[in-house]
Each structure stands twice: as structure tokens, then as C-alpha cells.
Simulated scan of single mutants.
Amino acid sequence: MQFIFATVCLLLLLLQLVILAWSANEITIQSVNIAQAIFEYYWYEQSEHVKKILLIMIMRAQKPLFLSIGPFRPMNMQAGLMTLKASYTYSQVMKQGYS
């Protein structure tokens, strides 16, 4: 029973990490597409006030958004894979130390 519980916990933690990394990656990808979407909009038919706002939005959208892992680095799929690799390595070191 303990083995089943440990396996389910491990699978749920892996699923949580994959969902977090995928979501963070999607935020970064979609934030880059904001400027293109604004440019494809009929901005030239708008008032001067709206044109200025859209220009500011395009300028801001040039820098992609990201979720960060504290002060360390942005979260993306690469960071998720690095976390999985490090976790596996640490678990193997601990396993060898106990046996």
C-alpha cells in the first residue's frame, strides 16, 4: 500500500511540474504574439488617442513576459526538464548513500 501511495504522489508531482512549465512556456510564447496582433488590427482607422495607446502597447510587447522561479531564472520547459533531471540525480545519490 505504501508503494502505491508513493507512486501516485510521484506521478502527481511530475504532472504538476509539467503543467506549470507548459503554462509558463505558453505565457512567454503568447506574449510575443501580442505586438503582431495589435499591428494586424485596424489601428489606422482609430483616433489619435487610441493610436498612441496601441503604440505604447506594441512597444511594451517587444519584451516577452515570463514567470520566474524566484530570483533565479524564468520558468519554461527547459527549466522544468532541468528540475526533473536534478531531482532524479539527487534521488539516485540518496539511494546509493542509504544502501
Results as ranks from 00 to 15, higher is better:
residue 2 Q to N: 15
residue 69 I to C: 13
residue 90 Y to V: 11
residue 76 N to D: 15
residue 64 P to Y: 08
residue 1 M to G: 15
residue 69 I to F: 14
residue 18 V to E: 01
residue 76 N to M: 02
residue 93 V to K: 04
residue 65 L to E: 03
residue 60 R to Y: 06
residue 38 I to Y: 00
residue 26 E to K: 13
residue 89 T to Y: 09
residue 55 L to V: 04
residue 14 L to D: 07
residue 50 V to T: 08
residue 18 V to T: 05
residue 17 L to V: 04
residue 72 F to I: 15
residue 94 M to L: 15
residue 41 Y to P: 00
residue 79 A to H: 03
residue 41 Y to N: 14
residue 99 S to V: 11
residue 16 Q to R: 14
residue 62 Q to F: 03
residue 49 H to C: 08
residue 18 V to Q: 05
residue 85 K to R: 12
residue 58 I to K: 02
residue 7 T to G: 02
residue 26 E to W: 09
residue 91 S to H: 06
residue 3 F to S: 12
residue 85 K to S: 12
residue 25 N to W: 08
residue 72 F to G: 04
residue 8 V to N: 08
residue 44 Y to E: 15
residue 31 S to G: 03
residue 71 P to I: 10
residue 21 A to W: 00
residue 85 K to G: 10
residue 86 A to K: 10
residue 15 L to F: 11
residue 78 Q to Y: 14
residue 8 V to G: 00
residue 52 K to M: 07
residue 67 L to Q: 07
residue 38 I to C: 03
residue 50 V to E: 07
residue 83 T to Q: 07
residue 39 F to S: 08
residue 49 H to I: 09
residue 79 A to G: 04
residue 31 S to T: 04
residue 5 F to W: 08
residue 17 L to W: 00
residue 76 N to P: 05
residue 67 L to Y: 13
residue 30 Q to L: 15
residue 5 F to G: 07
residue 53 I to R: 06
residue 20 L to Y: 03
residue 70 G to P: 01
residue 13 L to D: 04
residue 1 M to K: 15
residue 29 I to C: 06
residue 21 A to P: 04
residue 45 E to Y: 08
residue 50 V to F: 05
residue 34 I to Y: 01
residue 19 I to Y: 13
residue 92 Q to Y: 09
residue 52 K to C: 05
residue 55 L to T: 05
